[in-house]
Design a binder for these strands. Structure first.
Lengths: 128, 128
DNA sequence: ATAATATATGAATAGATGTTCATATGAATA
DNA sequence: TATTCATATGAACATCTATTCATATATTAT
């Protein structure tokens, strides 16, 4: 593909993008080839989004200390049962927590030790 | 603190929280003691929030491949220059990227190799 | 079966967030 | 100095998200 062709395509495709820019062709081409699937990057951001809310971080944190039920979590975080339950649903969907039922009570825990590693990694980063 | 006192305080403090719940006292007390600062957990969620947006993930990804300027990024992501610039501002504030000016152009790169580790860790997790 | 209790969930609302548009700033060049 | 170009930024808007409220479901006990 020549520079001319690329320029034409760019004008057709990137209406909104900088019209007068001076792109560094080599870099762009090189990186373009190394780009993962769009979907993979979307999944990745969805994954991190789960950690990007203080309520969910707190839930994950307390569950890293011990398995516990919904009301234990609500008590610890001083939040309503419903709010916790909604968030646990999301954490379930994202496979970050698992649960077991024992009578009327549902006990939640972290799905795997991987989660703790990520939390610790984040902690490490902000403590700098 | 007796169970009675705790119950009274709970009723005063946790208006919204489950009123009829049967908290598991031992667990709650143990974990309560081990809880980090509220602020630290807020910071942690703020940190992860940055990774929880697909545009920012893409920016971080392309910068993990090579230093580049705003318009290079806009071209690669097929997005407007302004959108990228706004996001770069946030990434700057969160100290995930640094930049150097060269004439009219501003080159951005990842602030440290730590960031790549976190991205890779996330990638690893979703690929399961 | 009925009541009590722990959790789940749908709808509504308020607040946060990302992109766009228009424009400003800063730097090179004529 | 005026112009051009790369980037930055404020305001507006639309979308997404978290919590609350009311209520449903599931399980146990009476």
């Amino acid at each position: 593909m020549t520079a001319e062709e690329r320029e034409r395509i760019r004008q057709e495709v990137d209406e909104g993008a900088c019209e007068f820019m001076h792109v560094h062709e080599e870099i762009v081409e090189k990186v373009e080839k190394a780009m993962p699937d769009e979907q993979q990057l979307l999944d990745l951001s969805e994954f991190f989004k789960v950690f990007g809310d203080s309520t969910r971080i707190k839930i994950l944190y307390v569950l890293s200390q011990s398995e516990m039920c919904v009301c234990d979590i609500a008590t610890l975080l001083q939040m309503g049962q419903s709010a916790i339950s909604h968030q646990l649903r999301m954490l379930k969907q994202m496979r970050l927590v698992t649960f077991r039922r024992e009578g009327k009570t549902v006990f939640y825990k972290l799905a795997d030790s991987h989660i703790q590693t990520i939390l610790a990694q984040g902690m490490e980063h902000i403590g700098e």
